[in-house]
Amino acid sequence: MSRTPKLDKKLISSILQQHKAGDASALVNVLHDLQAHLRYLPQEALEMAADHLGVSYAQMYGVATFYEGFHFKPRGEHVVTICMGTACHVRGAPRLLEQAERDLNVESGGTTKDLMFSLEQVNCVGACALGPLAIVDGTYKGSMTPAKLSNLLKKMHKKGKK
């Protein structure tokens, strides 16, 4: 059985219809909308989006990969993001990232084999007073330590297995 969910082309079309056809300036907004629904950007979605906006598929892919915010492989059920901003860095963010890499056994940017976790990093979310910061499924977890993060991941893992 394929782990990749079947693509809903109708959904993709309806997302694209919310943007004016042929308007390349909507390109990044379109990518965001697609990813918000699909959680990543599969090939078919990029092809359809390129058609809709009147740009080549190669350009669509070139632009999409230029940005850090887009993903091209299915992501895990939970997304753990470590803020690597300067304020977080001087307060020990690299140690958080290393800890998460060890615990999840993936490199930053990767997804665990069971598709439970994706580990990502971001270059500052502007919540510098809370640093070092981990963002778990969109929720900011401030003043993080490697030990605290480790516990959190273990708990999430247990819950997910149930």
Binding site: S25, H32, Y67, E68, N123
Partner: peptide, 8 residues
């Protein structure tokens, strides 16, 4: 509004 994609 044009959203960025995450590029400094």
């Amino acid at each position: 509004i044009n959203k960025g994609g995450g590029a400094f």
